[in-house]
């Protein structure tokens, strides 16, 4: 396995003025690091990777790494990635997006990308909060939890992102946490290998906003919580709904093969060209 210093040397941009913008203890770096490990494991050429993001703390991930990187507008990473993928189907297109970016302002794009089954790997960094703007509630903030725009408790019910994208038609859905780094790496690896639209939901921690206002303790304590509530799908399948209350099911949740968008479009091109030839003949 690649060592940390090798990872840093190989994938980080040395021309980019570090330090990064993330708070001490933030989970985003862990997810990014394991994404790099997954890529390294698959031995993909850096030139063949496009890494696209929206806006938020999560959205800052691409600038630090040495791929073709595109930092777009809030919620719109997926349609940018869709155009790019159609123009360059040979690229491995990865998207990093926050819970707000992906399911609030970008929710419409998310469900349509799932439905289209375009070969893009989307990693959703779910920290239950709008981190970058200082901790307002997001579509995944649990009912009753606090944020700086619902100090008396959230009265909205949260999205279950994995269930949402499954219903919208994603052909690969995996979920894990920033505590379970090996599983994280493996799921991202499988998601990249999957032909079609894949979503990896990563439960992570924002000690600065969500953690503070909900008195969740330090980053270490938030990680411990992730360890405690997570239950692997193989075990969860044998548990009843009562036992699963308050637990987060992790692992590869959905994996199926369906025609991929770009490949289908290639057959459209072939057919259109045959028809055009027919007209000329």
């Amino acid at each position: 396995m690649i060592s940390n210093s090798q990872l840093v040397n190989k994938y980080f941009r040395h021309s980019k003025k570090f330090p990064h913008i993330w708070c001490p203890g933030c989970g985003i770096g862990t997810i990014l690091g394991n994404m790099l490990r997954a890529i390294d494991n698959l031995a993909i050429d850096k030139n063949d990777i496009a890494f696209v993001s929206g806006i938020g703390c999560t959205g800052r991930a691409p600038v630090y790494v040495d791929f073709n990187t595109l930092h777009t507008t809030h919620g719109r990473a997926l349609p940018f990635a869709t155009g790019l993928k159609l123009a360059r189907p040979e690229l491995n297109v990865l998207v990093a997006t926050g819970d707000g970016d992906a399911t609030a302002i970008g929710g419409n794009h998310l469900i349509h990308a799932c439905r289209r089954n375009i070969d893009i790997t989307t990693i959703i960094f779910n920290n239950y909060i709008y981190g970058m703007t200082g901790g307002q509630y997001s579509p995944t903030t649990p009912h009753g939890d606090k944020a700086y725009t619902c100090k008396l408790g959230n009265i909205e019910r949260p999205f279950n992102i994995s269930a949402l994208v499954e219903a919208a038609g994603a052909t690969f859905v995996g979920r894990t946490t920033s505590y379970h780094t090996l599983q994280l790496q493996n799921i991202i690896k499988k998601a990249i290998q999957h032909k079609g639209f894949s979503v990896v939901e990563v439960i992570t921690h924002c000690p600065t906003t969500y953690g503070r206002i909900n008195r969740r303790g330090s980053a270490v304590e938030m990680l411990k919580w992730q360890k405690e509530v997570a239950v692997d799908k193989s075990r969860a399948d044998k548990m009843n709904p009562k036992e699963l209350e308050g637990r987060i099911v992790t692992g590869v949740l959905i994996e199926k093969e369906l025609p991929e968008f770009c490949e289908q479009y290639d057959t459209i091109i072939e057919e259109a060209q045959n028809q055009a030839k027919g007209k000329l003949a």
């Binding site: 696209v52 595109l70 777009t72 719109r76 940018f80 990635a81 155009g83 790019l84 159609l86 123009a87």
Partner: peptide, 10 residues
């Protein structure tokens, strides 16, 4: 957004 992405792809 999609035409920006495609333009970036050339």
């Amino acid at each position: 957004a999609a035409i920006i992405g495609a333009s970036i792809g050339g």
